[in-house]
Design a binder for these strands. Sequence first.
DNA 1: ACCTGAACACCGTTCAAGT
DNA 2: ACCTGAACACCGTTCAAGT
Lengths: 198, 198
Amino acid sequence: MAPKKYHHGDLKNALIKAGIKILSKEGIGGLTLRKVARLAGVSHSAPYAHFADKQALIATISTEGFKRLHAALDSAVEANADDPKRQLTEGARAYVQFAMNNADAFQIMFSGVLEKERDYPSFVEISHKTFERVVDIVRACQEAGVLRPAPPEIMAVAVWGQLHGVVSLVLEGQVSGKVLDHCDIQEIAHFALGQMMS
Amino acid sequence: MAPKKYHHGDLKNALIKAGIKILSKEGIGGLTLRKVARLAGVSHSAPYAHFADKQALIATISTEGFKRLHAALDSAVEANADDPKRQLTEGARAYVQFAMNNADAFQIMFSGVLEKERDYPSFVEISHKTFERVVDIVRACQEAGVLRPAPPEIMAVAVWGQLHGVVSLVLEGQVSGKVLDHCDIQEIAHFALGQMMS
DNA sequence: ACCTGAACACCGTTCAAGT
DNA sequence: ACCTGAACACCGTTCAAGT
């Protein structure tokens, strides 16, 4: 059997996985560099060999989240290659589902926890890529007459914003139970998106 | 001259003001109970005579923010008492302006920093009141044919979500500079809202 | 190159004690 | 009733030292 070298073969990835686990179990408030190290079985200062600071770990976890979100959008597009309207509605469904299934990751990605996102190129890259995916869908929908003519980037912000806003308000508990009793989040999001489609 | 009693006439309010000041200067990451106490000129344990814990202070500051937001919406409604469409567009403008002028307060109010909002009745009350104000505007717009027929509460979530989402994406830096160079946030929000109006 | 342990400056929170 | 100061358990981060 292979001798335990130092402690890990790949501590960096172990730390990321530990961070994601703690995040999903205890929320952002419980995410601590020292806890992450403990869960990975190393000393509290070991993470600093792989991440500059706590923000850097958060940036990596956020980037991971964006990759999964981007992949989900990709699937929705590919599964409906010749139907722009379904690309939009199914992409929207995927977005909402991602947010609901990964509420804490979603919060980390979008709630300003990560302060200097500019400093993390791979975060910027995947986040831009995700936006471009939305622009693609929007452009196809405009050509198909499903969305009104307008600069696609602006329309993409409106469409993404619509979904993002509804999801955020629900996640933050701003939508009263009276509304949520009658329809689930996917329905509300679908209704909201429907207001923009002709 | 009045003798300094203990230290303050109204420490509770002094703490709230100090908290708001620190929040706007250093952001949520710099908001610390001990700093708040220091700025108010009392010992680090003094706040506990007025707030159960840090969350309680945050809840109070959030409530304060909602009161100002609610007042801004009220003004927009009153200033356009007989023009539902303008109530909506001016209310939207007020919402966006509030978010931009109070980005950190906005973040505290909506970004899940406050974990058990249920525990703070006055927060729940003003947040519900604010939502009801949106419902009122939406209902008036539906009667005037400016928004499509639908249950007003659902439509209100869609409308609020639309604005909230666009504002949030911009505040989080998710909207690329390429877009922001061409139009300012008020324009984007107005465009997005316009997609829902007939 | 990768990790440990002690150290420092900071937190949130509690509690006995003071006026 | 309102505030202080010491105390405790926790952080993030740094740094000399070990393999």
